[in-house]
């Protein structure tokens, strides 16, 4: 991963949805650089805008939503300016591909697996002869860990199990030979054992095809496995971004603490598991100050008045919290977060 080689750069992106005349601001001025060849995880609760944010990368926002502010630079082009399907077809799949959450619904039940992969190959190269396309498709199937690809090629999605379908979806995405692969909760609907296998396949594909992976999830355990960097999202904003080690061992934002604390892995039996009090903010209303402030036990007065800027903790680690201001009182992370840090020393 080269720190200077930025493949996609989002600057101050704002996304608004029009819901029967009401304006909902789903993304509130997000800036993020994605480096070539890295795997970046975007973490947050449902409704935090993590899916919406990545959907802007390949023009998959619903018809009532649009980018109202900011730029999205990819290879010298500003994707935020794209409006027509024709423009997006140059990007979608070929440059930036996406894997959806539900492998049950993202495949066409009426077409064989082989046809669906070949469709993706044709998208890239229209002139490819049928038997060459078939050979290539079988190769992808083999690569994602599907045995006997020649037989599987002719089968329909219903003949595959959940984990196998997700492998097929990965094969289709790879067949487009994208630069960036966005994985939207690809393992949430799967078993733990299958999940581990899918993550392994994704990592193999990443090295083999030099992919840049953007991984969306709410499960921090999965993130530790796959991510180089983590961006934590809350209420349409990235509130903390850093390397995997930064976020797990030196988290600074109270929301990141809360998210880490609510993992059952950190729970102590017989005691209550930490749960974040209150509800996420209403995105129809204008948010003043730090969006997390009403749920934050460490909130300062200024948190309710002014939105915090990014404070640099280290060159790789940025936090949007007033707690980092030199004038702010020193607040220690909760007990179990410190325990996470001790884990680092143990080095299992």
């Amino acid at each position: 991963m080269n720190k200077d080689d930025i493949i996609l750069s989002a600057k101050d992106i704002e996304v608004q949805f029009n819901l029967r005349g009401q304006i909902l601001t789903a993304i509130r001025g997000v800036s993020l650089d994605i480096y070539r060849g890295e795997s970046l995880a975007i973490v947050g609760e449902s409704g935090s805008g993590k899916s919406v944010f990545t959907k802007t990368f390949n023009g998959l926002l619903d018809a009532n939503g649009k980018i109202t502010k900011g730029t999205l630079m990819y290879e010298g082009r500003d994707l935020a300016k794209y409006t027509t399907e024709k423009e997006w077809l140059q990007i979608r799949g070929k440059e930036i591909a996406m894997i959806m959450q539900e492998p049950m619904t993202s495949l066409n039940p009426l077409k064989t697996i082989g046809d669906q992969i070949c469709e993706a190959i044709r998208l890239r190269d229209k002139s490819i002869p049928a038997d060459a396309a078939r050979k290539e498709a079988e190769m992808y199937l083999q690569e994602v860990g599907i045995d006997d690809p020649a037989r599987r090629y002719k089968q329909y999605p219903h003949e595959f199990s959940g984990g196998m379908r997700q492998r097929v979806v990965i094969a289709i995405a790879i067949a487009c030979r994208p630069e960036i692969l966005i994985c939207d909760e690809p393992t949430t609907a799967l078993d733990v054992t299958i999940q581990a296998q899918i993550l392994k396949v994704l990592k193999e594909m990443k090295t083999k095809y030099n992919l840049t992976i953007v991984f969306i999830t709410h499960d921090l355990g999965v993130v530790a496995n796959i991510a180089d960097r983590i961006a934590v999202m809350y209420a349409g904003d990235i509130i903390e971004v850093g390397t995997c080690e930064d976020i797990f061992f030196e988290p600074k934002h109270p929301y990141t603490w809360a998210l880490l604390s609510s993992m059952p892995q950190l729970g102590v039996k017989g005691t209550d598991l930490y749960s974040i009090p209150g509800n996420p903010p209403n995105l129809f209303a204008e948010i003043k100050g730090d969006a997390f402030a009403p749920r934050n036990p460490h909130a300062l007065q200024i948190d309710f008045i002014k939105r915090p800027p990014y404070f640099d903790v280290s060159p790789s680690h940025k936090v949007r919290s007033w707690l980092m201001d030199p004038r702010a009182p020193k607040v220690d992370p909760p007990e179990n977060i410190r325990r996470l840090k001790e884990l680092k020393a143990v080095k299992i």
Binding site: V192, T193, Q195, A196, D219, L220, G221, V222, A224, N225, A227, C244, E245, F248, L260, M263, Q265, L266, L340, L343, K344, K347, I348
Partner: peptide, 12 residues
């Protein structure tokens, strides 16, 4: 062995 652990060092 398949349980995801919230520890990047152990996971790698």
């Amino acid at each position: 062995s398949a349980i995801p652990v919230p520890n990047p060092i152990a996971e790698r």
